[in-house]
Write a protein that binds this DNA or RNA. Structure first.
Lengths: 198, 198
DNA sequence: TAAAAGATACCGACCAGTCGGTATTTTATT
DNA sequence: AATAAAATACCGACTGGTCGGTATCTTTTA
């Protein structure tokens, strides 16, 4: 049996998430994580070849969660789907508020570390394409303006989401759920068909 | 005279900016920065009480640059002013592409370090208020819809800008100037008066 | 009992900050 | 103006401690 083994692995992952989130990648030492996980350093390096590998494992888990959330939020038409995504934002990110910091940490690491970048850029482009396709679909079904580049609209959507999350990180007290909702509505409004003439 | 003194101080600041930008706050050691500045460690600690103090000095410089840029970009009416800001984005941030990383680093530090947070939150709120006032002005002059909360619109604007910058960091090859332009136009379109009826 | 999992002690590298001392510049004195 | 005194700027070796990772040994599992 490998029940115990998997359990320690899980403990390590959970503890690492907590430590990374609260003090950051660099400040969270391997020993730190081991202590938080109630596990020895030997066990750690038995399960993960390096600290960075652990980091990447967490990244993949997180991306998988995101993927699942996106897939689950599809609605009848495109504008509604986008609003459903907006409603998801706080649920996914703000649940455990520390994750937000991890998100930034990922980004920072990715901008500097080749391995992390490789692991980040692929899903990032997947999301980009996902939203591009969504906008194109909206344009096809007539709910979105056809005179904007779908990929630009996608970047705007992703950018707005990311930017709001970052602001939430800096200033957590504001009610970002509402702000996100309203902001996305403004963006949608700019994307939707003008109701009439010039 | 303190000509030499100021010169070394400047050397340290410039070297620190380069090092922080290329390898990050943690990885850029004080000795590292000193070597890059052609200065001894003693000189470093003569000019700055700590590594963090140096960091904060850089932050303040950067914020001052931003302030100046914002003030310089005012145009006749509000939509044009906002578009002028959009045009500024690449000029300010992408000039030396490494600064973008610093920007993120600031954010990350701010979310974790009380001192950095204090130094960041004040200007951040200043910008927030700046854009809120701008949107209110637009609503008053009739160029922007009056049925959206000005502060939410401001957060959307800032959020979009920040989010696009972050994306640019992760994926530098795309032409973010154009994307920023188009995205802001979409957002503006959502903010502007609907041309006619429901 | 063999192999997997975990524990412990340890290594070399690194790093922020200190400290005793030196060089340079400014100010005071004659 | 020359010199002495004081202050400022700078140097670089050193300290105390941390960290990622390894080597070796013990325990658990199958």
């Amino acid at each position: 049996m490998q029940a115990r083994s998997e359990e320690t692995r899980t403990h390590i992952l959970e503890a690492a998430l907590r430590r990374f989130a609260s003090v950051g990648y660099n400040a969270a030492s391997v020993e730190d994580i081991c202590t938080a996980a109630g596990v020895s350093k030997g066990a750690f390096y038995h399960h993960f070849p390096s600290k960075q590998a652990l980091f990447l494992a967490l990244l993949n888990d997180w991306l998988a969660t995101l993927d699942a959330g996106f897939e689950a939020a599809r609605k009848a038409n495109v504008p509604e789907t986008l609003l459903a995504f907006t409603e998801m934002l706080p649920a996914i990110f703000a649940a455990a508020d520390g994750r937000l910091t991890m998100f930034l940490e990922f980004w920072l690491q990715a901008s500097r570390d080749e391995a992390v970048w490789q692991a980040s850029i692929a899903p990032y482009e997947r999301y980009q394409q996902f939203f591009t396709a969504l906008v194109e679909q909206g344009q096809a079904e007539g709910s979105l303006r056809a005179d904007v580049e779908a990929s630009s609209a996608a970047r705007a959507i992703v950018g707005l989401a990311v930017g709001l999350l970052l602001q939430a990180l800096l200033n957590p007290q504001a009610n970002w759920e509402r702000t996100a909702q309203e902001s996305m509505e403004i963006l949608l409004n700019g994307l939707m068909h003008k109701r009439t003439t010039t």
